[in-house]
Every structure is written in C-alpha cells, then in structure tokens.
Design a protein around this nucleic acid. Structure first.
Lengths: 105, 105
DNA sequence: CATTCTATAGGACCCGGTACTATGTTCCAA
DNA sequence: TTGGAACATAGTACCGGGTCCTATAGAATG
C-alpha cells in the first residue's frame, strides 16, 4: 500500500485491467476500448437546455460560472445562444447534467 | 416529491439555504458566499504536473483526452508546455487532480 | 516481417472565452 | 423612501485555447 489512490472502483478495475494487459491477456486495443466504454457521452446543449440546467440547480449565473471556472458573462452568452460551449466546457456541463452540480464542486 | 434530484447532500443543503433565504433569514450576499465556499480551488497546472497527473491515472494521452473531451493533440501540447489549459479545461484537470479520473468519467 | 498504437511535431485557422464598460431591475439595509 | 449592492443582459474588442491537418519515429502487436 505504498501508493495512494483516491478513486475507488474505477481505479481497482483499471489496475486489474492493466495487470492483465502486462501479462498479455489483453492487448492495448481492447484496453483502450474499455476506457472509452466507461465515458459518459457528451452531447451538445442548446441555450435553453443550459438555462434550464442552471435553474434546476438553483444557482445564479455568477455562482454557476464559479462552479465551471468561467466568467458570468460567458454563462449569459451561452443561455442567449451567442456562444456555444465546446470541448472541456461541454464536458463540464454534461457532468452537471448527469450528476448534478455537486459533481463539479 | 415531484421534482427529482440526483445530487445528495449538496442539493439538500442548497434547498435548505434557499428556503432560509426565501423566509428572509439569509440574504443573497451570504448565499453567494456560501456557494463559493463550497468550491474546490482551481490553481494553474504546469506541463510536468499535467503529465504526472495523467500518468498517475495510468491512461494514455488519447484516453485522457477522451475523458476531458479534448483532442489528444491538445493533451500533448499541454504536457510540452506549448499550450496552457485555462477556464473549463483547468477546472476539469483540477477535478481529476483532487478526485481522480473517475470523477469525470 | 507488416501493422497498429503511441507520442511528438508544426502549421493554419476559427471561435470560445476574457476583459471592460454600460444599462435596467430587483433586492436589501439604513 | 432612499441608496447601494447583486443580478441579468448587452456590446465591443481582443487574445489565445483548442481543432484539424499532415508527418515522423518508436514501441508494441500479430
């Protein structure tokens, strides 16, 4: 127990898979496909969906922005459709959508 | 119980705070300060820290990129110091740092 | 051997995100 | 009632983060 891990099940699974891979029971290809299979899908969100999402969490635009580490102005633009979140921002919004805002606190 | 909530403690606390706010026991200012106090701080990460973070999770650049919903090329640039993550990307990396990669799966 | 996965590299490019300022409204305290 | 925050929206200007493309080389696979 020299190393310290903070994630629970996922880490254990990954370590097991990695061990199996080292032994040769699993190739890298299936290893990668395994990783991808674990991911929550990220679908684009409309302006209305973002606004509804924020209101569902009962937070203001400013507080919402603080959670996502962006500016309140950007949240305003998302909700008005002036800008569309993409990449990391979309991933964060998906996390909030699927798991609630506490998941990104 | 018409509404359905997926986050646990945080939601309960927020609802309680919101109720107190509606009654008038708490003003918006303290409400916002409460929200901010719940957030995990986001500090900038160096190229080496990002690389170490990814290797700690035992995943390749490609898989790591999939988790963060960015391109593998960008992860490469982060680790070489060509680009520096900011805003939402930095928040995601902080989440991985504090809670493990399973937190953003 | 051939082939795939991996990491790195560089260039071009778009638009996401930031900073700044300004307006009107709602809310709170004096 | 008045003044002052906090809130939401708005507009502009701008930087650089992130994407897409292609290419190389090493390591792992079969």
């Amino acid at each position: 127990m020299s190393k310290k891990y903070r994630s629970d099940a996922m880490t254990a699974i990954h370590e097991t898979m990695e061990a199996l891979h080292k032994v040769g029971a699993i190739d890298k290809q299936t290893m990668r496909r395994f990783d991808d299979a674990c991911l929550t899908p990220v679908q684009p969100l409309s302006a209305k969906q973002i606004k509804a999402l924020r209101e569902r969490e009962h937070v203001s635009q400013t507080v919402f922005a603080n959670y996502l580490n962006v500016t309140p102005n950007l949240v305003s633009k998302w909700e008005r459709g002036e800008k569309r979140p993409s990449g990391p921002a979309l991933k964060l919004l998906s996390l909030v959508d699927k798991r609630g805002i506490a998941a990104v606190a």
